[in-house]
Nucleic acid binder design. Structure first.
Length: 490
RNA sequence: GCUGCUAUAGUGUAGUCCGGCCAAUCAUGCCGGCCUUUCACGCCGGCGACUGGGGUUCGAAUCCCCAUAGCAGCACCA
């Protein structure tokens, strides 16, 4: 095992909230994460994925990744890979992978059996007409056909002899059910286009059927999903009952909104197509790849999600809490550098040439220093010049006194005493020797900040660093023109 | 409209099942202080909540009823 991993595991965990116990879990569990491959995973997926993962880890057992690609209209062929990458990033302990598109023969077989058991019938009613009858608690004419007729019609559906919308297999539930959502819901439909990227079919199972069959066949013991599935859980119950199967234990957590970002895959896709977003990792959308690009770690996502738990209350996910978790992960690791945003050139008079040795990390001197050669001309953040301070401490260097304003700022050496700087309440600010730094663009959700950073930052590509007094940032790209850094958080 | 779920500080969360130990936990945030050659990290202190109204009870955040609000479902999506 890699040494970093050992260190990672022995590092005292932040106190992550203990999830409530699951009933019937003592002897181990089989759980599932079942995304639809319509795009990359986002924070909403992460909640389901991590919660299930945590329970599998806690009780032991298997964790099935089930790709729910039964609707070709909502399958993006590229998403299969993206989902896999995102799962890897999250570090889920997946033990089995199944694709529903590989299992259509199974669904057909159980579809026939459901008909034979009297649990389903082929309905050829017009959609709108069926809806009216359903709301009036009336049976549609198709409901009374014989099992043989339904079986034959089901075969015709499979063979492609019906056109889209002309026939559907319905589960026979209870037309008097007080909840109209329960009444004779559909289990299979006809679809002739678009073609499925992984197979050929005219007859497609709907989610409530394929999910119920698979949950049983895969031996799923516990299902944790959003409360938008409560009705589906009840619908699936009919199928379990018809087959005499024991359903899993279900938990439904509340709806989660996230401030400031789009979470819907279709909206994100539309935004990308319209050129509004740059891609699936645009920092303004809530995909995992987007937050990863900003320097959010999977550990932080995991902890934030566990912190939220499986409560049934609707919540609004706050970046503050995620950032706090992330900071705890990243702060001990991130090397420190100077980044001078919107720099102004200042000549310092009367100062001796000097080499500053700034620590890469204040808590880890053994990591070494960045050495900055002062030779008279320096770059300072314009922001700090506009505050009217006279005495300033250049971090790891010496004190200066500022005079002038605007583009005409100059400075004078004011001694090396840190104590004196303290006494005068001088701010300690970052600086760079003129001419040695490299251009750097800090990309933030509120726009970009340009400036100059230390040359050493070029060695940190892909890593999260801390720009002193500015905040954490992930070094996204190092090009001949300069560095692109993504702002993580303060 | 019908059906169902939920309701604790700015945010998240514990407590609610089995009423009293809750003048309500922890985290985050904010404010103040300390530490510190970063406005980071760390430490100390402070701020801040049981949706409303009835009822049951000696006693209710916890049980019951009503109201209000939010959310979800009523798709040939998942």
């Amino acid at each position: 095992m890699a040494p970093e991993l050992v260190e990672e595991m022995s590092r005292p965990r932040e106190q992550v909230r203990v999830l409530p116990a699951l009933e019937k879990a003592e002897k181990g569990v089989v759980m599932r994460f079942a995304p639809n491959p319509s795009g990359p995973l986002h924070l909403g997926h992460a909640r389901a994925a991590v919660l299930n993962d945590a329970y599998v880890l806690r009780y032991g057992g298997r964790y099935v990744l089930r790709i729910e690609d039964t609707d070709p209209k909502r399958v993006d062929p590229l998403a299969y890979d993206m989902v896999r990458e995102d799962i890897e990033w999250l570090g889920l302990a997946i033990s089995d992978i199944v694709y529903q598109s590989d299992r259509f023969d199974l669904y057909y077989r159980y579809g026939r059996e459901l008909i034979e058991r009297g649990g389903a019938y082929v309905c050829t009613c017009d959609n709108e007409r069926f809806r009216e009858m359903k709301l009036a608690r009336k049976a549609c004419p198709c409901r009374g056909r014989s099992i043989e007729e339904d079986l034959a019609a089901f075969e015709k559906m499979r063979a492609g002899e019906y056109e889209e919308g002309d026939a559907t297999l319905r589960v026979r539930t209870d037309l008097d059910h007080p909840d109209p959502a329960m009444r004779d819901y559909p289990a299979f439909r006809i679809l002739k286009s678009p073609p499925h990227p992984r197979m050929d079919a005219f007859l497609y199972p709907l989610m409530n059927f394929s999910v119920a069959v698979d949950d049983h066949l895969l031996g799923i013991t516990h299902v944790i999903r959003g409360k938008d599935h409560i009705a589906n859980t009840r619908r699936q119950r009919y199928i379990f009952d018809y087959f005499g199967w024991e359903p899993p234990v279900y938990r439904h957590y509340g709806r989660m909104g996230i401030e400031g970002v789009v979470l819907s895959t279709s909206q994100m896709r539309a935004g990308i197509a319209a050129g509004e977003y740059q891609g699936w990792d645009d920092i303004r959308i809530g995909t995992l790849r987007a937050i990863a690009r900003r320097g959010i770690t999977p550990e932080a996502v995991r902890e934030a999600v566990l912190d939220i738990g499986i409560g049934e209350t609707d919540i609004s996910f706050s970046w503050e809490n995620l950032f706090a978790r992330n900071k705890a992960v990243v702060d001990p690791v991130a090397n420190r550098y100077f980044f001078v945003p919107d720099p102004v050139l200042v000549r310092v008079k009367g100062a001796p040439d000097h080499v500053a040795h700034a620590l890469l990390h204040p808590a880890h001197p053994e990591r070494g220093t960045r050495d900055l050669h002062f030779t008279g001309q320096i770059l300072l953040p314009r922001e700090d010049m506009e505050k009217g301070r006279v005495m300033i401490r250049l971090k790891d260097l010496f004190n200066i006194e500022i005079s002038g304003e605007g583009e005409d700022i100059s400075a004078r050496f004011a001694g090396e005493s840190l104590a004196e700087a303290r006494a005068q309440k001088a701010p300690i600010i970052q600086w760079l020797p003129e001419g040695t730094g490299i251009p750097c663009t800090l990309v933030t959700p509120n726009g970009n900040r340009t400036g100059i950073c230390e040359p050493g930052v070029a060695r940190e590509k892909g890593a999260v660093v801390q720009f002193e007094r500015v905040g954490f940032a992930r070094i996204d790209a190092v090009t001949p023109e300069g560095i692109i850094a993504y702002f993580t958080h303060r």
